[in-house]
Design a protein around this nucleic acid. Structure first.
Lengths: 127, 127
DNA sequence: CCAATATGTTGACATTTGTAAACGATTCGT
DNA sequence: ACGAATCGTTTACAAATGTCAACATATTGG
């Protein structure tokens, strides 16, 4: 319902940290962001606030500050972003997905999952 | 070699038009952009110049103006953008790809292409 | 050849994004 | 209870992006 504004490049990096930690306080986030991107605590604080505003993180007050947790799974958000990019694929999503599968390292298990997904899709299409 | 700067949202829309037309002059592009997004010719001109600067379009002078053509295929550019997004998928690319296949409408042909890609991947993995 | 038309270029301006310091409120250690 | 450490909030500012008008120039129809 709520129109989610897209994440910016810097915001993605912060989201990734929170997704990895599953939940984290400001301190945790900016410690990691410091090592990983050399960002100052102030920068991280600003980004966290903006992400909250966009609705990708939820925060609950704990003691001094907040505990942040993802408002949506990374699969959902990344998947959504990718899907919106795929709309730019003039030659169709098929070829792009193929190129992706081709150039991405996938485990045997990943391949099985994809295989199943495709088989199922096929059935649904022939009722 | 040349570090391509990312396209912005508005630039993607212009690129899509040129990819569709395969080649086009300014007039063509902004006529379509006008219908599709309500953009003024001036806006389109600016965007075209910026995209040229970023290296996603090449232009050859023809008569009064320029003939633009994509410097790279949409599959390559879109694929690249998607791959870079997938790096944000904490849970692994496998699940995201699965979710994508699941939620994207795919033609029978698309499914075949994917099927092939997967079969091939499997072979490569069992030497 | 000249007026009408179409193009590229330049300049502009509001908004968003990247990056961060400073300040005031809050909490914690002792 | 009080000073030290921490947090969130406010403010700032340069760069990038979204949008576009004006102008000088090139092209073309008559």
């Amino acid at each position: 319902m709520n129109e989610l504004k897209d994440l910016t490049a810097a915001e993605w990096k912060i989201m990734r940290i929170v997704w990895e930690e599953r939940k984290a306080m400001t301190r945790e986030v900016y410690t990691i962001a410091m090592e990983r991107h050399g960002w100052s605590p102030a920068t991280v604080k600003t980004l966290l606030r903006r992400i909250i505003d966009k609705g990708y993180l939820s925060a609950t007050k704990i003691g001094n500050g907040f505990l942040y947790r993802p408002a949506k799974s990374s699969i959902a958000v990344v998947g959504g972003a990718v899907r919106s990019l795929l709309d730019n694929a003039v030659d169709g999503t098929g070829p792009v997905l193929a190129q992706l599968v081709e150039t991405t390292p996938l485990s045997q298990k990943d391949l099985d999952i994809l295989q199943n997904m495709i088989d199922q899709k096929r059935k649904e299409q022939k009722p």
